[in-house]
Amino acid sequence: MRTVRLSIKRLLDIVLSLLGLIVLSPVFLITAGMIRKKMGSPVFFVQERPGKDGEIFKMIKFRTMLNTRDAQGNLLPNEQRHTRFGKMMRSTSLDELPELINVLKGEMSLVGPRPLLVEYLPRYNKHQARRHEVRPGITGWAQINGRNTISWEEKFDYDVWYVDNLRITLDIKILFLTVFKVFKRQDVNKSQQVTMEKFQGTDLDREKQ
């Protein structure tokens, strides 16, 4: 039964991501042009992320930050490199649109646990590592239940709950709620931070069934 669900989920990913790329192509072009004008090149931000079973892939997003560096050549903190336009893209999730390409390629799904940094892989406990049993998603159960306003542990609990309860009706519910939250611009940042603090690991290696 789960195999059938995953097959239907993949078919929906292909159809909806292709449709999204076609329908949203004007938005892609306008956004890319604005990034080029306000922040220069490159337009895209490409970074390695772990996918299903921890397999590494290159995730594509629109760039939201300047590449400003200090005298030693180090990138300045995120807060100093964000522009007003970049913050607007993040609050409206416009920066996530290129991930539809990752979905079409089979590296991501429309719905699933968000792909995080590669450096986090050895920091997960056994329970948290289960988030990699499915393809990562553009949006997910954790994103509609707090996104960046909840702790890492809460976020991973939501991710694993999704893995255990995966079904097409749940994906449809998550997609609709994501659209609702994007329009309301809810839960983008924790407090006033631009991004969440990095995950450093969980002290107690909780085993959850």
Rank of each mutant, 00 (worst) to 15 (best):
Q143N: 12
R114D: 10
D157N: 13
V134F: 02
D187H: 14
V46L: 12
R114A: 04
P113V: 01
R2H: 04
L117W: 08
K155Q: 13
Q193P: 00
R123C: 00
T68Q: 14
R2Q: 03
E99V: 00
A142M: 02
N165P: 03
W141M: 04
D53H: 13
L100T: 04
R36D: 05
N74H: 14
N78S: 13
I174C: 12
S25N: 15
K208E: 05
V23E: 10
N145G: 14
E197V: 06
L21H: 03
P77K: 10
S17C: 05
L117Y: 07
K37I: 12
L19I: 11
I150L: 07
D203F: 13
G140R: 00
D203M: 14
P50A: 03
F180T: 07
R206E: 15
R206I: 12
L170R: 12
I8K: 07
N165A: 03
L121P: 00
I35L: 01
G140E: 01
K87N: 14
G73E: 09
R147A: 06
A71D: 15
W152F: 06
L24Q: 09
Y120H: 15
F85Y: 10
Y120M: 14
F45V: 02
L97K: 01
L100V: 03
K38A: 06
L18E: 01
L66Y: 02
L29W: 07
K87S: 13
K105D: 00
E96Y: 06
N189W: 05
F45L: 08
T68G: 08
Q209P: 00
L104V: 11
L76F: 08
T202F: 05
F62M: 09
R63C: 00
D70R: 07
F180H: 13
L12W: 08
P26E: 10
G112A: 11
Q80A: 14
E96D: 11
S109P: 05
Q47I: 03
L100S: 08
S41F: 09
K61M: 09
G73A: 02
K9V: 07
Q200W: 09
P115D: 01
L18A: 14
M65G: 05
N102M: 00
F156W: 01
I22Q: 08
F180N: 09
P98W: 06
